[in-house]
Simulated scan of single mutants.
Amino acid sequence: MRIITLVLFLTCISQSHAKQSHSSVDLTRQIEVTGVGQVFSIPNRFSFSLSLEEKGNSAADLNGVMTEKSTRVINALLKVGVNKKSLQALQVRFNPWVVYNNQTREQKGFILTRTINVTVDDLQVYEKAIDEVLKLGITSISNFNYSNSESEVHYQASLRQALLSAKARAEDMVKSLDLKLGKVISISEQSAGQAMPVQMRMREAKSSSSYQPGEMTTETQVRVIFSIE
């Protein structure tokens, strides 16, 4: 009976060791690769911000002047084709107007600042809009930005390219070693797929004959682990 029990015990140990060894081999028979996908597109949404500033002694008078100035700017933008829904002019800020003279601090009144955000879907309208505000004497133009309205579609297409790239890379590697690619073990996304400019020339606060929108690229990167058969 003792001999039979000992044999069974040794058999269990042998099987357990074999399973562990096999598991260890399985863990090492895998390949990890990185795939990259890129989709190019043309920007079709453009935006910028205008900053209007007035200084004075009376807050009420400043508000009246600012309202009149803002109305002129908004009407000029609407005239060249900017959609009214694409204008945001709610940001207003009051600050003390302080001057220093021989280390003496003197408050002369207030500074009223208003920010107008503009977004357009047409490059020609974008160019005309900036020309119009420059004609009005507005030179504080900032936050130039551009994007593509189909950014999510481009992101998904770039992601598919990255996965196919990872698979092709893994197949080439195992083929070189006379091996066979197995199933996917895991997939992880390594990037957010943000669109980045390839070429974009913006005007600053001066007139120019034309903008060059250039291209944008949406790039994604994935990490894929395959088993090796």
Rank of each mutant, 00 (worst) to 15 (best):
N44R: 06
T113Y: 04
A76W: 05
I130N: 12
L78T: 09
V120I: 11
K55P: 02
D121L: 10
N95R: 08
V39G: 07
G37W: 08
K79G: 04
V65L: 08
D122Y: 10
V120D: 14
N117F: 07
N75A: 09
D26M: 10
D61P: 00
L123T: 10
I31L: 04
K84I: 15
R114Y: 04
V92P: 05
S41T: 15
N75W: 01
N117D: 10
N117G: 11
L123I: 15
Q124L: 14
N101G: 07
A59P: 10
T104R: 14
F110R: 02
N63R: 02
L62D: 05
L50N: 09
G81C: 12
S49R: 12
I111L: 03
G35W: 01
D61C: 00
D122L: 08
G64V: 01
R72M: 06
D61L: 07
R45T: 15
S47E: 14
R114E: 11
I130C: 09
F46W: 13
K108F: 07
T113L: 02
I116K: 04
N57L: 03
V36S: 00
R105I: 12
F46R: 06
R29L: 08
L87C: 07
S70R: 05
S58I: 02
L50T: 07
I130H: 04
N101A: 14
N75R: 09
S41E: 13
V125E: 11
Q124D: 13
T119F: 08
T34D: 00
L52H: 02
L77P: 03
K69P: 03
N117I: 03
S70C: 03
V118F: 06
D61V: 02
T67L: 04
S47A: 15
V98A: 07
G81T: 12
T67P: 00
K128S: 15
V80F: 08
N57E: 09
N57G: 03
F94W: 11
K84C: 08
R72A: 05
S41D: 14
V118W: 06
R105K: 11
